[in-house]
Design a protein around this nucleic acid. Structure first.
Length: 451
RNA sequence: GGUCCCAUCGUCUAGUGGCCUAGGACACAGCCCUUUCAAGGCUGCGGCGCGGGUUCGAAUCCCGCUGGGACCGCCA
């Protein structure tokens, strides 16, 4: 009989305690790319294991933390679809969920370390005395074994002179007292981890499992910052990105399902996700790929949902959306097909379907000579009088008419496209005509003297 | 400077000793479709940083180098 052996890292979800992870942003700015990425992986791991996703606000930096930033971070996460099970707004059994409200807890454990002679006072501050000759190590799920000699560490400030805890002390106390058993965070925290391990050991607390995530860099391979353009997830919303697309793209930064799938929903990502498949190498944030994934997700949307999401962008363009019913708008977007990589582009590319005014503004028809007009008039008259208002039939008619007259199809389609849409690109022009209907088509063509 | 981490096409990645003359995706180029564009289909371009080992055999293991990054705050 084989002996049943289970590695500690494989025990979870089996007979182990419930997975508890957390995302712990500090409210000193909006939810940025790196933060969202970290939050996403934590969320994925929690949902994957039917665990608990805790949101904790690390606001010990009183100077820079604001309530407004806290709110935008929560809003940003909601927008991305990263719901939390415990947090400052909804509470939970392990609260409070703001570090500023947990001061007595930090002091309790600082006192304990003081009493045991492991820490000392320096003024009002409490400082941990780092012992010499220790090898501090931990097994990272992503990076493997990481070790550091305690001799290379300076003493660790636990409580600052103003009475608030430092980051390294607060995370340890919070993660332990909140029952966090998986610490999933950015790779920039790897060097902090040995200090934290030392603190866990000194407090006699079991270590959580650590999983560090690769950094996300800008095009210049430097840590993502304002220089690289949009850094807050809200800016992406305003530019017309779908939360599910951003979600999809973030998931692909530092992880892949293992097969060739790249477009997936949140539910599929949960099924596929595994911390063991997280990569180590820092990833460059690539807007082009995001655009592509966004386009795919826009195309996946059902037409009515697409209308709902594009509407704000139409309004932004000054279009009178209310004039049309939902059915008309849904059909308009169906006609547009997969064109446009962002909701903003979709709105732009479809503007002529909502309003002829924008066409008039950008196209004056002056490029047409009288003789060109004469030929087109002949064609248009026959076209608008056809009995069967059908794109296929009209295209067929146009083809035969063109060959009969010895004109190229292009030479009749392009002027019509300009007159009807005011653009050089659009869906098939006869589909556009079929969509507009006889009256609208006649009126637009007449405006440019083509009827 | 010290410590730690990383290293496959331009970018995101697959790859855990033989299935790799290294696969996919984005981008790029060409072709097909075609009234334009997008989508779609096909083709192409393009990579294991370098040098040593180990091995019958290395992108995969070991060492060194080089390059990049992170941390070293009473910031988080």
């Amino acid at each position: 009989m084989p002996i049943l052996k289970v590695k500690s890292s494989e025990r979870v979800g089996f007979m182990e305690e419930k997975v508890r992870v957390r995302f712990a942003p500090s409210p000193t700015g909006a939810l940025h790319i790196g933060g969202a990425h970290t939050a996403l992986f934590n969320w994925l791991w929690a949902r994957k294991n039917n665990g608990v996703f805790v949101l904790r606000i690390e606001d010990t930096d009183r100077e820079r933390s604001t309530k407004a930033f806290e709110e935008t971070i929560l809003k940003g996460m909601e927008w991305l679809g990263l719901d939390w099970d415990e947090g400052p707004d909804i509470g939970g059994p392990k609260g409070p969920y703001r570090q500023s409200e947990r001061n007595d807890i930090y002091h309790e454990y600082a006192e304990k370390l003081l009493k045991e002679g492991l820490a000392y006072r320096e003024g009002p501050a409490v400082i941990f005395k780092v012992p010499k000759g220790l090898t501090l190590g931990f097994d990272d799920i992503v990076y493997g074994r990481i070790e550091m000699e305690s001799d290379t560490l300076k003493d660790i400030v636990l409580i600052k002179s103003d009475g608030s805890p430092t980051y390294n002390f607060a995370v340890v106390v919070d993660d332990y007292t909140m029952g966090i058993n998986y610490v999933i965070r950015g790779e920039d925290h790897i060097s902090n981890t040995p200090k934290q391990v030392l603190l866990y050991q000194s407090l006699n607390w079991p270590l959580p499992r650590f999983a560090h995530l690769p950094m996300i860099l800008g095009k210049d391979k430097k840590k993502l910052s304002k220089r690289h353009g949009a850094t807050s997830v809200y800016e992406y919303r305003n530019m017309g990105y779908l939360p599910e697309a951003l979600f999809n793209y973030f998931a692909l930064l530092g992880w892949s399902p293992g097969d060739d799938r790249e477009i997936f929903t949140k539910e599929e990502a949960i099924k596929l996700f595994d911390l063991k498949r997280v990569t180590k190498r820092a990833a460059v944030f690539d807007m082009e790929k995001l655009n592509h994934i966004n386009q795919e997700h826009i195309y996946l949307l059902d037409p009515y949902k697409r209308v709902e999401l594009v509407t704000p962008f139409w309004k932004e363009l000054g279009l009178d959306v209310e004039r049309h019913d939902k059915e008309y708008l849904a059909k308009a977007l169906e006609l547009l097909g997969g064109r446009g990589q962002t909701l903003k582009e979709v709105a732009e590319y479809s503007d002529y379907l909502l309003d002829f005014e924008v066409v008039k503004e950008r196209y004056d028809g002056k490029d047409l000579t009288e003789s060109q007009k004469d030929i087109l008039k002949e064609f248009c008259r026959e076209l608008v009088n056809t009995d069967e208002w059908d794109a296929m039939k009209m295209a067929k008619f146009a083809k035969s008419w063109a060959s009969q007259k010895g004109v190229k199809m292009k030479d009749v389609a392009m002027p019509l496209r300009w007159a009807l849409t005011g653009r050089k690109v659009s869906p098939g022009i006869f589909e556009v005509i079929a969509f507009f209907g006889r009256e609208e088509t006649k009126s637009r063509l007449s405006y440019y003297g083509l009827l």
